[in-house]
Structure formats: structure tokens, C-alpha cells
């Protein structure tokens, strides 16, 4: 069904954080599915578990782990914002400001986390840095 012209809702901070919450939630859900399966290999043999863990240490998957941490961190911070909107009496009034607080916490934490997570891969790819 095509929406009549001019009625499409174009939200701002509130809508986009809602969209991002859904997208990150679905991504995390599918990772959890894979993660339970890979961890279950500890019941098969140490060797099969170690082999799957070795793939987690490769540069490409290492980069995907940064994405995972980003998805979880955003979902967690925005989840706290949702709870503040629901339970704090001034929550709805400050929902927009709280979106910017979420981002203000998200960015520096991600910069630090990314540095720690990829430094080993960097050293591996471009020679030892430490």
C-alpha cells in the first residue's frame, strides 16, 4: 500500500533511535544464535572449539566483533533511555536530549574499545607495534 503523498512520518532523534534499536536488536539476536552454537563445541572436543575460536581471531571477524560491541553498546544505552522515558516523569520531555547523551557516551567508549580490539590485529598485519 502506497501512503498518500505528504503523510509519511519523518521523525527525528526519536524515530531514528527507534529504528537503530530494532536493527541492532535483530543483529544481536542472530549473533546470539551463532554464539550458542560455537560455544556448544566445547562439548564436542577442545580441538573443534579451538578451531572455531581461531576464526574469531582473524582480522575480518575481529572487525565484525567491533560491530557487535557497537550494536550491543548502542542497544544497551538506548534501552536505558527507553526505560527513562517510561519510568522517569520528565523522560518524555527530555527524550531528544537523552538521544544525544546516548551518542555522547557511545562515541568515546567505542573509540577506546575499537583501539583495544584491533590493536592486536594491527600488530599482526603490519608488524609488531608493541
Amino acid at each position: 500500500m502506497q501512503a498518500p503523498a505528504g503523510t509519511l512520518y519523518r521523525g527525528r532523534e526519536g524515530m531514528w533511535s527507534w529504528v537503530a534499536h530494532r536493527v541492532t536488536g535483530v543483529l544481536i539476536f542472530f549473533f546470539l544464535f551463532a554464539h550458542v552454537l560455537d560455544t556448544a563445541l566445547v562439548r564436542v572436543s577442545p580441538d573443534s572449539y579451538n578451531r572455531i575460536m581461531d576464526t574469531y581471531k582473524t582480522p575480518l571477524v575481529n572487525l565484525m566483533e567491533v560491530g557487535l560491541v557497537g550494536a550491543v553498546l548502542f542497544h544497551a544505552l538506548n534501552g536505558l533511555r527507553v526505560m527513562a522515558i517510561d519510568f522517569w516523569e520528565k523522560g518524555t520531555r527530555y527524550q531528544k536530549q537523552m538521544t544525544w547523551v546516548v551518542l555522547a557516551v557511545f562515541v568515546p567508549v567505542m573509540v577506546g574499545a575499537t583501539y583495544r580490539m584491533v590493536s592486536h590485529t594491527f600488530a599482526q598485519l603490519f608488524g609488531s607495534a608493541s
Binding site: 575460536m53 574469531y56 566483533e65 560491541v69 574499545a113 592486536h120
Partner: peptide, 25 residues
């Protein structure tokens, strides 16, 4: 989950050598 999962990610991926030190042992 904010505490459980962020704690889990911190221990597994950021602390010490991160994912590089994870194996069966």
C-alpha cells in the same frame, strides 16, 4: 542484561589480550 552482557564483552574482548586468549582452556 546491560550489566551482564557489557561485563561479558568487556572481559572477553577488551580485558588483557581480548579474544586472542580465548580457547578451551
Amino acid at each position: 542484561l546491560v550489566f551482564l552482557v557489557l561485563g561479558h564483552l568487556f572481559i572477553m574482548l577488551l580485558l588483557d589480550d581480548g579474544v586472542q586468549r580465548i580457547n578451551f582452556g
